[in-house]
Structure formats: structure tokens, C-alpha cells
């Protein structure tokens, strides 16, 4: 873990709610190894209502350009401020934080399921799998076509399937209703998104006897295991989602 100032190389709005920030260390120091599922804690210039850092998952690491990609949804005042930082602006990060998804060691059929901005860590996970010669299936859900982010990037890593609630892209409905889940048998499912969605995915996996890892986004203050605020109830008792997670095997959770 380290605390480092980053320069914002680009800040691109992907739709009315989400921005993609590409950042590189101010001093050009080489980025450490990072793993899919890990996150950063972003310092927001303090104001009356924003006191704590904002945890944001790592969307992608571009080793050649020494850049971290951060996909940020404007949820409240803090994330709005981060999204308003112009190109050339400075962002202070504590990183890398948390554990990571289990990277598959052998070829098989892998499904990465995400809802909304939950797709952020899936791009990094998919790219690492591709590096290892594994092409996964991606199933992304959102309210509308504009909510399915970074489609071109995902399409390069494997097969992309979508669901939208209004039917404007892919199949109409929720990810767990997609026909793919009836047609294909997977060895492992990875998921990130709204909790009800992840719980539905986990239930599907449990019923099918498929391994499943979920990435939680519990409210946290520190991000490195000292405040004990982001706890999740597990078979091992209360554990910090920031250090023992954010990725959990569904078998550990009391869902």
C-alpha cells in the first residue's frame, strides 16, 4: 500500500453519470503489480460534506502507459467532485487495496456478470484472463443501452452479452433472466454490481453448483482494515470487506 499523487491524463464522460479517469503517478514512478478486484481510496478535496476518501475499484491497468483507469459513477457530492477534476489535475490515492478475484489457472468456461458501474473491475479481470489465454463471456446489465459501459473494450476480451430493463440493448430484463444462463454451463462465475443482482447471481450459481465470487461495496472509512466499519457477516464472523474482501467466495457469505 502507498499514498501517491496522480496526474489525471484524461477525464472522459461515458454517459451522463459515469466518467472514465486515466491517471498516472505525478513522479512517473512505475506502478506496482495490481490485481483485478483491488481498489483505490481517492482523496476528495475536503469540503463540509465530504470528509472521507472514496473507494473506487481498479477498472484497468495500462502497464505500457503506466496508467490506472478509474470508472466513476457520480453518486453523491464526493464522486461528483472527483469527476469534475480536469485533465492535468491531481488525484491523491491510497492503493492498491483489498484482495482480488481468483484468476483461473486452466481453460474452461467463465462468466463475468455485472450490473451498471459494477462492470468496472470486470474489464481488468477479463483483460488478465485474456493475457492468460482465456476468453470469458461477459454479461452486462443496465437500465438502458447508455448504462452498459465500455462495450468495445469488453468485446475485445471475449463474448459480450447484454440485458437492459427497457430493452434498448440486448435482451430485455435482468441479467439473471438472460437466455445464456439456460443454454450454457459455466465452471466459474464472477460478479459485481448492486447487491440484489449479486444475490440473484449467487443463487443461480448455488443452484447450478457453480463456483462464484462476488465483489462487495460495503460502506467504508479507511479502506485498509483499521476502522472496522465495512464488515460483512461471513462463516468466519464479521470480517472487513476492505482487507478480507472486497472479493468473497459466495460460500463464505451468509446470503
Amino acid at each position: 500500500m502507498q499514498v501517491v499523487d496522480f496526474t489525471v491524463r484524461s477525464n472522459e464522460p461515458l454517459n451522463d453519470q459515469n466518467h472514465l479517469l486515466k491517471v498516472t503517478p505525478v513522479g512517473d514512478e512505475k506502478l506496482p503489480e495490481m490485481y483485478p478486484g483491488q481498489f483505490v481510496q481517492i482523496l476528495v478535496d475536503s469540503s463540509l460534506h465530504v470528509f472521507l476518501r472514496r473507494p473506487i475499484s481498479i477498472n484497468f491497468v495500462d502497464k505500457k502507459k503506466n496508467e490506472i483507469w478509474l470508472l466513476i459513477q457520480k453518486v453523491g457530492e464526493g464522486t461528483k467532485k472527483i469527476c469534475s477534476i480536469p485533465e492535468g489535475g491531481i488525484l491523491n490515492l491510497i492503493f492498491p487495496l483489498g484482495n482480488s478475484f481468483t484468476l483461473p489457472e486452466k481453460r474452461g468456461s467463465y462468466l463475468l456478470v455485472a450490473g451498471g458501474v459494477g462492470s468496472a473491475p470486470m474489464l481488468f479481470l477479463g483483460s488478465k484472463m485474456k493475457e492468460n489465454g482465456i476468453e470469458a463471456d461477459f454479461l452486462l446489465g443496465g437500465r438502458s443501452a447508455k448504462d452498459i459501459l465500455q462495450r468495445e473494450d469488453f468485446a475485445q476480451l471475449g463474448s459480450l452479452y447484454c440485458t437492459t430493463e427497457d430493452g434498448s440493448l440486448g435482451e430485455k430484463g435482468f441479467v439473471t433472466h438472460h437466455s445464456l444462463l439456460k443454454e450454457k454451463r459455466y465452471d466459474f462465475i464472477y460478479t459485481c454490481g448492486p447487491k440484489p443482482m449479486m444475490m440473484a447471481v449467487a443463487e443461480y450459481a448455488r443452484n447450478q453448483g457453480i463456483e462464484c465470487e462476488v465483489s462487495l461495496e460495503n460502506l467504508m472509512a479507511c479502506g485498509f482494515g483499521v476502522c472496522l466499519c465495512c464488515v460483512e457477516k461471513t462463516v468466519r464472523g464479521n470480517v472487513c470487506a476492505c482487507t478480507e474482501g472486497p472479493v468473497f467466495n459466495m460460500k463464505e457469505l451468509l446470503w
Partner: peptide
């Protein structure tokens, strides 16, 4: 960290709320 004679699981989630220039916690001595 606050230490007790016997182990404690602490309180249920959510345990934290950000407030103007501060935060509330309810960890409960986990």
C-alpha cells in the same frame, strides 16, 4: 484497538455514516 477480556463480534453493519467534517461509528469494540 480496544481490547476486551473475551472476543467480541461488534455491532451489525452498517457501522459508519459520514457527517459534515466527521463521521459516526458504531463498531462496538470488535
Amino acid at each position: 484497538k480496544g481490547t476486551t477480556l473475551t472476543p467480541r463480534q461488534g455491532n451489525d453493519y452498517p457501522r459508519m455514516a459520514e457527517t459534515p467534517s466527521g463521521m459516526l461509528n458504531a463498531v462496538g469494540l470488535q
